[in-house]
Simulated scan of single mutants.
Amino acid sequence: MKVRGERECTECDTRWSYYETGSITCPDCGSMRSVGVDERRRHTDSPVELDLSEHRLRFGEAAGTLPEDGHADLEADLRAYVHRRGFIRGGELLPLDDVALAARELLQALDVYGRLADPTDHDREYLLRLLDGADDGERPAPGTVPDRLRAARGLAYANAIDAYREDLTRYLDDMGADTADDSGPDVDLEAARDVLESLRDRIRRVESLHGDVDPDAIETLVRAANDLGRYLREGDATALSSARERVSGSTQ
């Protein structure tokens, strides 16, 4: 949706950024009577932080099988974070960041791990590694993903890329509509849309395989999505070429 980012309280005249707070309530006097005072801009990213420190205290010292208690709370916090995340903030296109990717993978890995009949030490250690670094955007390298958890990464990343692709589409539509604004980068909108369509096809392929793909292949699609985002932000033709090459070379 498009919203007015700068708001002014009609009670005390305080001004603040809706993009930063996500609230129409005045941070000074608490009044809900406020008005937007600037132009509307596309905004899909809500202000939210991922803090898993309490969950690490519960699971971090676990030995052997992970404790059952606390799984629901951890999953709820991860879902809340994922639900509030978007990739356009006040009209500015953001990258597909590592925290968003790691949070989705941890959420998916918890589900897969919970259904394993005999999780190994490697499986458990990998899950704890995700938990240890997700809120700092630390993503384990593709080659370290256990075989039985690679579907979790594949499906999680596919979902993240698809969410990013939807925001890229919105951003492209806005660029196409702003024909009077020549201050932005010079981009080929149709070429970008062609890459987006190819990216969509690759993601559907991963989904049809329930995420069970080579971790290196899904990582290539993450980089392709970010290359395309960089092209739209900066107009760098090499980024478009890189995105196209990565998508076309990511066959499963």
Rank of each mutant, 00 (worst) to 15 (best):
R41P: 00
R41L: 13
R42F: 01
R42C: 04
R42E: 08
H43K: 06
H43E: 02
H43M: 01
D45V: 02
S46N: 09
S46E: 12
S46G: 00
P47E: 08
P47V: 11
P47I: 05
V48N: 00
V48F: 01
V48K: 01
E49M: 07
E49C: 01
E49R: 13
L50A: 03
L50E: 01
D51E: 12
D51H: 09
L52I: 05
L52E: 09
S53A: 11
E54H: 05
H55V: 04
H55G: 05
R56H: 08
L57W: 09
L57T: 12
L57F: 12
R58H: 14
F59D: 10
F59Y: 15
F59V: 08
F59R: 01
G60P: 11
G60D: 07
E61Y: 14
A63H: 09
A63P: 00
G64H: 11
G64W: 09
T65R: 15
T65L: 14
L66V: 06
P67F: 03
P67R: 02
E68G: 00
E68N: 02
E68Q: 06
D69C: 00
D69A: 15
G70R: 05
G70D: 06
G70C: 07
G70P: 02
G70H: 10
H71Q: 09
H71N: 14
A72D: 10
A72G: 00
D73Y: 13
D73A: 15
D73M: 09
L74M: 14
L74S: 12
L74E: 10
L74I: 12
L74N: 10
E75Y: 04
E75T: 11
A76Y: 09
A76C: 00
A76V: 01
A76D: 12
D77K: 08
L78M: 01
L78G: 05
L78P: 06
L78W: 06
L78S: 02
